[in-house]
Write a protein that binds this DNA or RNA. Structure first.
Lengths: 225, 225
DNA sequence: GTCTATAAACAGATAGAC
DNA sequence: GTCTATCTGTTTATAGAC
């Protein structure tokens, strides 16, 4: 199924409906899962007609693909732009600072934006499903962002960005971030937090950033290895 | 719906069918999701009849609950026993060693056992759904294991196990582990690994354990804080 | 306990009026 | 582009024979 090749949308009203369908679908797919969400629910939530899904996206699968495109674009703006457009200019300290900023803003987005939960759930359910959605997310978001952070981490530690330790290290950073979104309820319960607000995010950020600095210190060339 | 209160299973054949249904369901729920899996598929995979699900579990929801019980029991044996029955005897070095062993075996289980993928997927989809399944997994697995590791980490760092930094720190450990299961395909693609075998697991283990030692070093009382 | 057959509800897709 | 009405297939649950 080709993505985004369904309708030419000659009118503005069509674009509006199309957009509302994507947003409603993303929220429902994220909250309940793709299979558990019926096209009737989506249309109802988007104040649109059931048949409009087939008209705009060719069917439920087309809507899933459109959601993936939307998510890739969103993530590109939120994470990608911050990371991809930063330039440490060869300064290791600046490189570490950029990584810290990227982690901070990613953490803020993941834990304070209501839409982040649905986006994260949607992405999480798609990254274990080999297919067009995975390919789009990987090549458009994961690969470029990971590569760029490896570049910065390589600079910060004085190692080759392609070094296995660097590439795996970046994944351990991402894992730490993500868990506080995935295990949201577990964390809140165990920490005895009613909600995860600014103060709680700050506590998490502090620990994660400390871990990243510890990684850099432990893996710096000349400082042991 | 009360869990496990459906049938008394007076015969051995009944127990056998019941067990096969749980195993088949867990594999399918994990691989495709609860909603995407039909009771027909489950019955077929378990070499049982469709009606047997209603007979043994009262319906599809009862089967989900039975899977949760089975998973809680499994995780209790695999992770829980290793962690819960270790005793560092007040020695900080031994405490760190126990944590390292626990992380190592959890990593081994997550990345090399075929069943781990389905269990992880199943758990992942349930921890964002407040309900009886979440409660069971939290009180029977997550809470006791997390508390115990906090105890060890407190001993290793010389801090109070209830310290916010310790409790959050343990979550960052778990996040690092889990990501290599959740982001399996992303990691493999980016690392240019065909599969994640013993050698690859060893590389991951090395980085994660190094991070944990760096955490302990950075958060030891007397060593800065 | 296990089976077949079927009921009742629901899914996604589509034809055709407007 | 949007709507109603409907087609076709599938779902879970269940009744009842064995």
């Amino acid at each position: 199924m080709a993505r985004g090749a369904w309708n030419r949308d000659s009118s503005r009203a069509g674009e509006e409906t199309r957009s509302q369908l994507i947003h409603a679908a993303l929220a429902l797919f994220g909250a309940k899962g793709f299979d558990a969400t019926s096209t009737r629910e989506i249309a109802s939530a988007a104040n649109a007609n059931i048949a409009s899904i087939a008209y705009h996206f060719g069917g439920k699968e087309g809507l899933r693909a459109a959601c993936a495109d939307h998510v890739a674009e969103q993530l590109g703006r939120i994470i990608g732009d911050v990371v991809l457009k930063s330039d440490p200019g060869g300064d290791p300290d600046k490189a570490l600072k950029i990584i810290e900023n990227a982690i901070s803003s990613a953490l803020g987005f993941l834990l304070s934006q209501p839409q982040a939960r649905d986006i994260a759930s949607f992405v999480m359910s798609e990254i274990n499903r080999p297919g067009a959605v995975f390919e789009a997310l990987y090549t458009e978001v994961f690969e470029p962002v990971h590569t760029k952070i490896c570049e910065f981490l390589g600079l910060a530690t004085g190692r080759d960005p392609k070094d296995e330790v660097i590439r795996l290290g970046v994944f351990t950073f991402i894992g730490q971030l993500l868990y506080f979104r995935i295990g949201h309820f577990i964390v809140a319960r165990r920490m005895e937090w009613e909600t995860i607000g600014p103060a709680e995010i700050e506590a998490i950020r502090s620990v994660v950033l400390s871990n990243i600095r510890a990684f850099v210190a432990a893996n710096k060339t000349g400082a042991g290895s």
